[in-house]
Simulated scan of single mutants.
Amino acid sequence: MIDIEVVYALAQQQTLLALKVPAGSSVAQVLRLEAVVQQWPELDLAAMPVGIFGKVVDQPAERVVQAGERIEIYRPLLADPKEIRRLRAAKAARDRAKAGG
Rank of each mutant, 00 (worst) to 15 (best):
V27D: 00
V21E: 03
A67N: 09
S26R: 02
T15M: 10
A11F: 12
L77E: 06
G54M: 06
D80A: 10
L16C: 11
I73S: 07
L43C: 08
P81E: 06
D3C: 11
E83W: 08
L77M: 15
Y74F: 12
A99K: 14
D58Q: 13
P60D: 07
R32I: 02
D80K: 09
E83N: 09
D80C: 14
A11L: 13
R70N: 05
I4Q: 00
R85M: 10
T15W: 07
I2H: 00
P81V: 08
L78V: 11
V6C: 06
G101T: 08
A61I: 02
D80M: 06
Q29R: 11
G54R: 04
K20N: 13
G101D: 06
V27F: 01
Q59G: 05
G68E: 03
L45P: 04
A92P: 05
Q38I: 02
R63H: 07
P49D: 09
R70L: 07
D3M: 12
R85E: 13
V57W: 01
A89D: 14
G51W: 01
V50W: 01
R70H: 04
E83M: 11
Q66G: 03
I84G: 04
V50Y: 01
A89R: 15
E42Q: 15
L77I: 13
E62I: 01
Y8F: 15
E62Q: 14
G51H: 03
R75V: 04
E69F: 00
Q59T: 13
G101L: 11
K55D: 12
A9F: 05
V64C: 05
R94H: 12
D95E: 15
K98W: 09
V56N: 04
L87I: 09
I4D: 00
G68V: 03
D80I: 06
A61F: 04
Q39I: 05
K91N: 13
A47N: 08
V30F: 00
Q39Y: 05
D80F: 07
R85F: 09
A18E: 13
Y74W: 07
E83F: 07
L10Q: 13
I84Y: 06
E42I: 06
L16T: 14
V36H: 02
R70C: 09
W40L: 08
M1D: 13
R70T: 13
L87N: 15
D44R: 11
G101V: 04
A23R: 07
A97N: 07
K82T: 10
I2Y: 00
A79Y: 15
A97F: 11
V36Y: 00
A67I: 03
G68D: 04
A28P: 02
P22Y: 01
P76A: 12
A89S: 12
K20R: 14
K98C: 04
A23E: 14
K91A: 12
R96A: 15
G51S: 06
V30Q: 01
I2W: 00
P60E: 06
A28V: 02
L17V: 05
E62V: 04
M48A: 10
V21A: 06
A46F: 02
I71Y: 02
A46H: 09
A92E: 14
R32K: 14
L87Q: 15
V64F: 00
Q38L: 09
P49V: 03
G24H: 04
V50K: 01
T15I: 13
